[in-house]
Nucleic acid binder design. Structure first.
Lengths: 221, 221
DNA sequence: TTATATAGTGAATTTGGGTTCATTTTATGA
DNA sequence: TCATAAAATGAACCCAAATTCACTATATAA
């Protein structure tokens, strides 16, 4: 059984159907991914050695290679896992068919929670997908990751678009509104991540709402 | 003569007092820095070899080492040059003692021009100093660069602060206003850098003014 | 309990690329 | 023009770290 290929992320949902052995394998794979995530997010791809990852995951180097073809593939898996977590969580919120203003508020809340609960993942994700610049470990990865991100922004834009049509928001290019909301909330969230103790994370959603929703996008009635 | 130590950036101003030989050396040093900047900004520190830099600069590898102790030092010099360019240009604008609204507008204009004329430098700079996340080649560098950036943000905040006191801007934590303006304008500028042909760069300043100045910060009279 | 397969190990090998330095080329000035 | 110094060169060296693989340990089945 070649674990490298049989146990993809997409198969995770079948977990409860797996044999004990398979479950154990999956568990180990997950542990390696977790160790790698923590290290990569802390120090970046090139400053982490396979030795280090192995040590943190409490396996031998060779074992890592039983699960992942190469360091690069391991990195890719870590990134993909992360991108899927973030984008799918947020996309879900953006697809709910309720009042657009509520959707945006919920989006902000969810994003804050996501940041709070997955600091390592977030750091890694933004180091790669970043504030717009992309100097990535691999260009190929780039494209794939990037498209996840773009998709989300476009969904956000759609919400603004509908909200504008319904006269909930002020008329403005919805794509730019999406970019603006995304970047402002990120800026505040990074500020929070730097010293999480300075203020509670709930402030972020409030701040963003005050500065963005109330002043830019919301149409005064 | 040990060029590594005698010819710092700070000494550039003395250029016209230098002998022909010294001028030639400085010129060579600059050419190496330029080649390195282009490569680093395109592919990132770890994906560029000294061989490559040497080739692009049309020197032998050994020659590079006559000018820079190590790859890391070369990188550091490139980054510093860049940070100084960006931060000093913008700081200058922010320190002018005119109407705060004008200052912000001019800041945006200058920033656009800076982005347009120094794409490589900008990419490198933001890859390191980034949208807030920092996984850097070297932690030490990080701190230094970071403080340049922080200083600028703080100057921007001061402008807002004064503007608020003069009732030009709406009352809001000036530091968060600074962060917001910074992040929105960056987001738009990165959008532009991705495909510069989609719209002229002048749109950026307009966009940011429309979305930010007019709606968030400017106090309606 | 023993045989067989499967999983895990980590020392040894390989590799990529940063750095060095003996040699060559160029510039200076007598 | 020739001697000497300064600068440039790039093949060879070296090392860190990715990858491999022969071996050991463990689980499964007969």
């Amino acid at each position: 059984m070649d674990l490298t290929h049989t146990l993809h992320l997409g198969d995770k949902m079948k977990k409860d159907k797996l044999s004990r052995k398979e479950r154990e394998q999956l568990q180990r794979r997950t542990e390696i991914l977790q160790a790698a995530l923590e290290l990569f997010s802390q120090k970046g791809y090139h400053n982490v050695s396979m030795q280090e990852i192995a040590a943190r995951a409490e396996f031998a180097v060779g074992t890592i290679y039983k699960f992942f073809k190469s360091k690069e593939e391991l990195y890719r898996e870590v990134l993909m896992q992360t991108a899927i977590l973030i984008c799918s969580t947020l996309s879900e919120v953006l697809e709910e068919k309720v009042n657009e203003y509520i959707t945006i508020k919920k989006y902000l809340e969810t994003k804050c929670k996501l940041f709070m609960e997955n600091i390592s993942a977030i750091q890694l994700y933004f180091a790669e997908v970043g504030g717009g610049v992309r100097i990535n470990v691999k260009r190929a990865l780039d494209t794939e990751l990037r498209s996840f991100y773009d998709q989300m922004i476009r969904k956000l834009a759609t919400v603004f678009d509908k909200g504008i049509q319904k006269k909930i928001f002020q008329a403005f290019d919805p794509y730019y509104l999406a970019l603006a909301l995304e970047s402002i909330s990120n800026a505040f969230l990074f500020e929070w991540m730097e010293n999480p103790d300075k203020f509670p994370i709930s402030t972020i959603a409030d701040l963003t709402e005050k500065i963005f929703l109330e002043r830019i996008s919301l149409l005064p009635k």
